[in-house]
Nucleic acid binder design. Sequence first.
DNA 1: GGAAAATTTTGACAAGTGTCAAGCTTTTCT
DNA 2: AGAAAAGCTTGACACTTGTCAAAATTTTCC
Lengths: 174, 174
Amino acid sequence: MQKVTRLDRISPQRADKFAERRAELAEAALQTLSELGYARTSLREIAQNSEFTHGVLHYYFHDKVDLILCSVRQYKARCVTRYDRVTADAKTYEDLMTGFLAALAQTMRDEAHMHRLWYDIRSQTLFETAFRADVAELDKSLEDMIWRIMCRFAELTGEPQSVSPSAIYAMIDG
Amino acid sequence: MQKVTRLDRISPQRADKFAERRAELAEAALQTLSELGYARTSLREIAQNSEFTHGVLHYYFHDKVDLILCSVRQYKARCVTRYDRVTADAKTYEDLMTGFLAALAQTMRDEAHMHRLWYDIRSQTLFETAFRADVAELDKSLEDMIWRIMCRFAELTGEPQSVSPSAIYAMIDG
DNA sequence: GGAAAATTTTGACAAGTGTCAAGCTTTTCT
DNA sequence: AGAAAAGCTTGACACTTGTCAAAATTTTCC
């Protein structure tokens, strides 16, 4: 058995397969969370949104908290890379602006349900200590991402950056 | 048995006693919710924060949703009356300002844990339809309260009111 | 092709959930 | 005081939860 612990000493392709399944199951968890909210999300419910049965979740994840944290991390990573691609690709101010707005629009439209999930998870943070550190770290990485965009804006316009990172993030998040 | 339904045809003092117990239990629910968050709050846990056993909750409340809704409503009513007293008592602009700030400070200090509960409940609203209507109504009553304060401010200064009710509420709530 | 390893299913477990009814205790009323 | 009502406790129910181990299945490798 490979199990969730110890990913080393395993052939690369095996590890890839393993990571792929994890991603697949994390995706099912995301779907469930966004549909039912944290309070009503159970492992069996998650499994039903995948093509596997509930037992497999403990093969790929340490426990429920691990699974949920991984899934949220995965979702946020998707967000970050999407925005970062825009930042990297943009050669002009207009590029960046339109790209940024397009990405923002997509987030709003296609992922409204995901965004409310993000609120829900953050609410849980207020009570469950297990989530706190990881969610804080995710928040930080989002803030950094926004900051990178703003820096690029400043770079392209030649203006200096004026606002603090946290202030901007607070604005966008709201 | 009196039970939660049909409060009429009962002597006033009986009804008072009944309402008092309800308030008492709702308070225990509030304490539990603010400590554990919605996802981890159970009826037995609530009962343990009161001087009764879990069975009594169904004597005074229709079901769990009813209890939680009543308790949150009770908490918000406390807030509203506190602020409204300030509004009513204030004879001068300074009265109102100092009173308002004092009330705000108290809310922040003594009830930080209650406020995070409010966030939690609102998060639930995004998923549980049962809460939606009532929470929306509560939100409205809070907005109205803030609006009354602002009107009184305008009255005392002689200035006309400039901002929309919802905008002000959004500012204060954040 | 067949042993070994990886993966997935199945079923069980202990604990916890909301709900409710039957009974015990206290209060109220005449 | 004694009957009736109200208040409260107890214990059960059906169900759900996270967890895990053993078995069944599939894949990998020689």
